[in-house]
Amino acid sequence: MLEARLSQSMVLKKVVDAIKDLVQDCNFDCNDSGIALQAMDNSHVALVSMLLKAESFEPYRCDRNIALGVNLTSLTKVLRALQNDDLVTLKAEDAPDSLNITFESSTADRISEYDLKLMDIDQEHLGIPDTEYAATVTMPSSEFKRICTDLQAMSESVTIEATKDGIKFSCAGDIGNGAVTLRNYQNVEKEHLNVDIELTEPVSLTFSLKYLVNFCKAQPLSDRVKICLSNEVPLLVEYLITGTSFLRFYLAPKIGDEE
């Protein structure tokens, strides 16, 4: 059986909020190392991968591997009842047909308990190899979000160009074109505003802005976002959660018709 108690309960809410607009139903795969999630969108051009390590929970107990097939919209509805300082506990049987979610108020003596019906989801699991990316950009997540939403107003796709000069987000649409260029930036006092660009070779790739904006819904999870690019492989957008837990998005680049 599974029993996982999360003190930073909002992490769960934010993770679900970030994924629910990309994926409808998905399996939360629970094992002794933590809770993992991998799912693709309907078009199978984007992939989300999440790992909440066991260390994030206190306590965490999972005797055997359990797949929790969850409709994310339904989970969102339950998580709406979650308040900021609540402790959340997930409980499930070994072969569960429902997931028990308990919210405990840390200040008041209030316990909310929900049972969410689970479903059988037949999902294929892709093996994602560790890749050496040609360009890795770490930047404030809010910055990335703003760039994406700004450019989305102009066009539906963006070309991300990483050179030694910096990283350039450019787009061309019906009303004109636009570009945002970021250079390496160090702020000693406010480190979270740093822009770090690591480059082994120049890269230029085009992506669907709709998807990128969608990824940016994970922005509340973290101040920082890591963007990794290599020619002819999917873009990786990574948000680090507490510790080594992460939420990663992969998006296939647009090849060919760049209109």
Partner: peptide
Amino acid sequence: AGESRGVRELKKVNTAGMKKMSDFFKKK
């Protein structure tokens, strides 16, 4: 009802020229 607005929106996205994830990542 089980589909969020974002999922619906993404269905409309033009994914021409985008390869499927399974082209990049092999099945486990």
